[in-house]
Amino acid sequence: MDLRIFTEPQQGATYDELLRVARTTEDAGFDAFFRSDHYLHMGAVSGLPGPTDAWITLAGLARETSRIRLGTLVTAATFRHPAVLAISVAQVDQMSGGRVDFGFGAGWFADEHTAYGIPLPEVRERFDRYAEQLELITGLWETPAGETFDYLGKHYELANSPALPKPVQQPRPPVIIGGTGKKRTPQLAARFADEFNLPFADPATATTQFDRVAAAARAIDRDPAEITRSAALVLCVGRDDAEIARRAAAIGREVDELRRNGLTGTPAEVIDKIGRYREQTGITRLYLQVLDLTDLDHLELVAAQVAPHLN
Rank of each mutant, 00 (worst) to 15 (best):
L120K: 04
I227L: 08
A204H: 09
L158E: 08
I227H: 08
G107T: 06
E132P: 06
F102G: 07
R124I: 11
A217C: 12
P199G: 09
P186M: 07
F192E: 00
I177Q: 10
D223L: 07
G179Q: 09
I177W: 10
K182N: 13
P171M: 02
R191E: 12
D202K: 12
L152Q: 14
A131L: 01
K182V: 08
T180R: 15
A189Y: 04
P167L: 04
D202C: 01
L152C: 06
E135W: 01
I176N: 08
A219N: 04
L158N: 09
K183D: 10
L188R: 03
P165A: 10
F149G: 10
E112S: 09
A106P: 14
L140S: 10
R212M: 09
V168A: 10
T143R: 14
F127A: 02
E147A: 11
G117V: 13
H113S: 06
Q187G: 04
K154Y: 00
H113D: 07
P119R: 11
A159F: 12
R99V: 08
W141F: 09
A217E: 10
I137G: 08
K183Q: 12
R212Q: 14
L188C: 05
A189F: 06
P173Q: 05
G105L: 02
R129L: 10
G139K: 01
P144N: 03
H155E: 02
V168N: 06
A201N: 12
T180D: 11
T138H: 02
A190D: 07
D101C: 01
T185R: 07
D223H: 04
D211R: 14
D202E: 14
P162E: 10
L120Y: 01
T208V: 15
N197W: 10
A163Y: 03
T180N: 13
E147C: 01
P171L: 03
A163P: 02
E157G: 00
A215Q: 14
N197F: 10
T228H: 05
L136Y: 03
I220S: 07
V100P: 08
A115D: 09
P162Q: 08
P167C: 06
L120Q: 13
G146Y: 04
T205K: 10
Q170D: 05
P162Y: 07
A219L: 01
A163G: 09
I176M: 14
A225C: 03
F102A: 06
A110D: 13
R229E: 07
R212A: 15
V100K: 06
L164R: 13
V123T: 15
P174F: 02
A204W: 03
D150M: 09
G139T: 00
T207Q: 14
T185K: 02
K182C: 00
L164S: 14
V100H: 05
G153L: 02
P174D: 06
A219M: 01
K183V: 15
A225Y: 06
